[in-house]
Simulated assay, not measured.
Amino acid sequence: MKRNYLYITILMVLVSLSGCGSKANKPDAETKTEEGTQAEHGHETEVEFTALQYKAAGIQLGTIEERELGLTIKANGVLDVPPQNLVSISVPFGGFLRSTDLLQGTRVKKGQLIATIQNPDYIQFQQDYLESKSQLEFLEAEYKRQEELAAANINAKKTLQKAKAEYLSARARVQGLKARLQLININPSSIENGNFKSTVSVYSPITGYVTAVNVNVGSFVNPTDVLFKIVDTEHLHAELTIYEKDMPKLKIGQKVRVYLSNDKKERVAKVHLIGREVSNDRTITVHCHLDEEDISLIPGTFLSGIVETGASKVASLPDEAIVQNGESKVIFVSEGSRKEGNEVVQLFKAVEVTTGVSDGGFTEIIVPEGMNKKASVVLKGAFDILSKMNSGEEAGHAH
């Protein structure tokens, strides 16, 4: 009996130890499995997008571009035109505006009739011209007669000199009155038969667009009044305001990237002239010529410019193509697609990159070794792909 009791006691102890060992090992296995799952999901870099998700994210693909990035000067400015391309229309002698068809934005051609001005004084100008011209003919004949008499020693030298002075004075007056008529666009030869005009025509001196109409029909305009302003937009240029400290970096011919305040399109210009006077706010003006002229642009439009003072071509992508993933920066490369049933799934792979200088919305990237530089890269929608990739990792951690 004692021997059987001892045997039973030993057996119970062994069973108890065996159960404890099994329980102790089980959590280790589960921990190992969970760690394995986390490790597997923690390094996941591929993302799948259905056609619907692809469209909703607005994904756009492109390639890595060689682009000049480097030292730049950022500045603000306005579109402007040379003085000879901006004309203020006035009349040399006042009058009443009789007619005009101009409105702001109207396109006019050089030599086109743009207005008529009426003033009774114009008749007086024409009358004075004809009277002076008739007097000139008489004085010219008298001067020639006195020359003939002087040659025959018949008249006094003083008489000849007087006739000459009167003739030259009358000739000068006629020339002055003729120039006055030409200023108001009246042809002197057209009034010699007595057909006087009380109205004069105003013609456009350039081809361009009307930017200001300061008068209305019936109003009286003085010689100092500006009736209209016309601008020829064919030779618009960018006037940049650069701080004095950046002046040593400027050189003629440097490339300038121009962005209008009302347009995101990039336009290219070159530094043409550098101002030589520093204003009170310690800035200078830099005159830049646009490579491609655009007559639809409007003078006075605000703009921002980036002057490239020293740059080299580097591999680059738009800023939005590069996203921050933890402490790393990644881009997404298209891995093609595959078909799952009736649906096509787009595949993307995250690639960690090193970035360099940023300039004008683009950032230099150091292409990882082994990556194809011509690979299709996500230019727009990278953040949405990153969000889905990270949400997939969190789901993996939850298991």
Score class of each variant (00 low, 15 high):
residue 268 V to F: 12
residue 26 K to P: 03
residue 160 L to Q: 08
residue 384 D to Q: 13
residue 337 S to G: 05
residue 96 F to L: 11
residue 73 I to C: 03
residue 214 N to D: 09
residue 153 N to Y: 06
residue 361 G to Q: 02
residue 147 E to F: 01
residue 194 G to F: 08
residue 44 E to R: 13
residue 390 N to G: 03
residue 157 K to F: 07
residue 61 L to I: 07
residue 147 E to I: 00
residue 340 E to N: 10
residue 57 A to R: 04
residue 212 A to C: 05
residue 87 V to I: 15
residue 190 S to L: 05
residue 198 S to N: 14
residue 141 A to L: 12
residue 358 S to Y: 02
residue 297 L to I: 02
residue 22 S to V: 15
residue 312 S to E: 14
residue 64 I to D: 03
residue 399 H to F: 05
residue 330 V to M: 09
residue 150 A to I: 06
residue 130 L to I: 15
residue 293 E to R: 13
residue 308 E to S: 12
residue 178 K to R: 15
residue 15 V to D: 02
residue 53 Q to S: 10
residue 314 V to W: 02
residue 248 P to K: 07
residue 367 V to P: 03
residue 3 R to H: 09
residue 215 V to I: 15
residue 221 V to W: 03
residue 163 A to T: 05
residue 81 V to D: 02
residue 37 T to P: 00
residue 149 L to S: 04
residue 239 E to R: 14
residue 248 P to N: 08
residue 294 D to L: 02
residue 84 Q to G: 09
residue 180 R to C: 03
residue 107 R to G: 07
residue 140 E to T: 14
residue 397 H to N: 11
residue 39 A to P: 00
residue 320 E to Q: 14
residue 258 V to S: 00
residue 299 P to Q: 09
residue 43 H to I: 11
residue 19 G to N: 11
residue 257 R to C: 01
residue 320 E to P: 00
residue 296 S to W: 01
residue 346 Q to Y: 14
residue 116 T to G: 03
residue 174 V to N: 07
residue 98 R to L: 11
residue 216 N to Y: 09
residue 120 P to W: 10
residue 32 K to E: 12
residue 100 T to Q: 08
residue 232 D to L: 06
residue 34 E to Y: 10
residue 101 D to N: 13
residue 272 H to T: 07
residue 156 A to S: 15
residue 354 T to Y: 11
residue 313 K to C: 01
residue 33 T to A: 15
residue 346 Q to L: 11
residue 327 E to M: 10
residue 337 S to F: 12
residue 117 I to C: 02
residue 369 E to C: 06
residue 60 Q to M: 06
